[in-house]
Design a binder for these strands. Structure first.
Lengths: 338, 338
DNA sequence: TTGTATGCGTTATCAT
DNA sequence: ATGATAACGCATACAA
């Protein structure tokens, strides 16, 4: 009935400007090789019709969508916002939109939505050994990059923190402070960062003549509850544990909450160290000492690798390992006298 | 060179199955009115070729993308993950994908990406009075819904919490506890929730014969720093302020940090109340007393409204106001003796 | 410098 | 029950 409410197409703009449709396409993309007058006339007409190129039409022919999928865990786990936000910002900066793709152990990410051509590439932040997703993406020819976690030996680009070195540094910090009864809440053993941090901790401790007493070790997902519950458990069932090394900051925050809840002072009565240096680690109430990995850099570098991969799917794979540094705040202290 | 690495199309499937392309389309969509044998043959061929329908082709003709944009603030502000996550989950449940669209006072959301046909609808969580976005979306015919915040008088669907009532409840709680020197950190006055919570607080206080002393009032964005700094300021420049009402939980968490940092005990020395009941409010160290709004319900209801709007763009607008309830935890207490 | 013509992969209409 | 055919809106190769 009312043809005016129809969405304007490049043909409409062409008609109004008195040019051909292809001229409209050229003009609006600023292609050069055309008279300034024509371009102006087209731009004027486009403005008048509030014309915005229809994305599906364009991507059907260009085979590009300027969208990238970010596979991440539950956003209410504070680690993911801190990783996704800089990712999103970097993607936006490069003219890409971010599509959120949830992934968890219980409900693995859906592959269909990543292989229907609606994404130019995918960033994987939750890789686990044995996961089928990377294979499926590779088979489908979808460019992707491992971030934060990787799958060793899998031929793909990756950007990760130097987890081993960070954990060694943690061990040294604790030993220097006089801790001998060190406890730990380790991450899942089917994740690269979980394993590397574990290995680094053992290595660092051993190098200083210390060992991890299995009685002081707990293991679980990288989440608050794991840290909270494991800490209460450690508090209830072990003696003299003076420090708890956590698989990441979110776990460490859970540990802080447990320790404080138990009436102990973090830093004085119990040393807690995290990993990642998420924003909340810097909140005054926590003052979490942690191994910092620049998440903004991690995001930027990951996006950069993905862009290169999209640009040239045949290029050789790159693995970027980011420096880490110990961020000393208030959650550590000398070992309390036994 | 290698035609086998080309993406399979419905034509490829048709050729392999020995049927026409249109039959493939029908078979794979389960359209009925065709022989089971043919369907099976098509499905078999599709599987063999790992065929996934190309999204751009489909959406070009169907005019639907099964993608929804969620306009939200910086994810490192813990309120947004708590709102976006259930939103994403609900959208996924309905077969929609979530596209993250950032929006802040400094850099307002880009309209182009919402009007290029790549989104079936948009959810606005950061509406501000005077914002052009809602008008632009309406002009472009893009279905959208206000969530969390709205613009009063703007003809659109909306789903918000009962902010006024919640703030009145807060006032009553404080007065009942004996607080008379009540301080407040109010939200931006160009946001509906900021204004409504402010109005409700005043109303509730006045009804009990109390008034807000301007000296005890600060104002700022809904973020941690606002709560932290305003609280330090309040602590330094006012006497006897025994309670601080915050515009939301994130601000309240900032306030808790400031108060604790100052060596005071939250709940005993200073009462702090938030709004929203985000997950972190329940963390043991904070035990934040707050006015709860079921964010999962907010998300689900918002998505429902959007779906209805997409389905029928001409239907009359609906405004849903969600119940709130006071969640009493540990951050409140009786007014300390003066 | 500009126009004509073609095709991207899908859904959908219309025959048969 | 199935096949031919025509759009959908755009970019692009080629002609002029």
């Amino acid at each position: 009935m009312s043809p005016s409410s129809r969405r304007a197409t490049s043909h409409d703009v062409a008609r109004l400007a008195g040019v051909s449709q292809s001229t409209v396409s050229r003009a609006l993309r600023g292609l050069g090789g055309m008279s300034p007058e024509t371009r102006q006339r087209v731009e004027q007409a486009a403005r008048q019709l509030a014309y915005v190129p229809f994305e599906a039409g364009r991507s059907l022919v260009t085979r590009a969508t300027r969208r990238v999928g970010v596979v991440a865990g539950d956003l209410t786990n504070p680690f993911f916002p801190d990783l996704v936000e800089p990712m999103r910002a970097e993607l936006e900066h490069r003219g890409y939109r971010t599509v959120l793709i949830p992934d968890s152990v219980e409900s693995p990410a859906d592959v269909q939505v990543m292989t229907d051509g609606s994404l130019d590439g995918v960033i994987l932040t939750t890789a686990r050994m044995g996961s089928r997703l990377p294979h499926q993406l590779a088979d489908a020819g979808v460019p992707f990059v491992f971030t934060n976690r990787e799958i060793h030996g899998f031929p793909a680009d990756a950007c990760v923190a130097d987890n081993r070195l960070g954990a060694v540094a943690t061990a040294n910090l604790l030993v220097d402070l006089g801790h001998r009864a060190v406890g730990a809440i380790l991450g899942p053993s089917d994740t690269s960062n979980g394993r590397e941090r574990e290995a680094g901790l053992l290595e660092g401790l051993n190098a200083r003549g210390l060992y991890l007493d299995p009685a002081r070790v707990r293991r679980g997902e990288f989440d608050f509850d794991t840290g909270y519950r494991a800490s209460l458990d450690l508090l209830a069932n072990t003696d003299r544990t003076s420090a708890i090394v956590c698989s990441n900051d979110v776990v460490a925050l859970g540990a802080c909450n447990a320790v404080m809840k138990a009436g102990l002072a973090v830093g004085r009565d119990m040393t807690i160290v995290g990993f990642d240096n998420i924003r909340m680690a810097g909140w005054p109430v926590f003052g979490l000492t942690t191994v910092g990995c620049d998440l903004t850099k991690l995001a930027a570098e990951s996006v950069r690798l993905l862009m290169l991969r999209i640009q040239d799917p045949t290029r050789s794979h790159t693995r970027v390992v980011l420096d880490v540094n110990v961020v000393e705040r208030a959650s550590h202290g000398t070992a309390s006298v036994n």
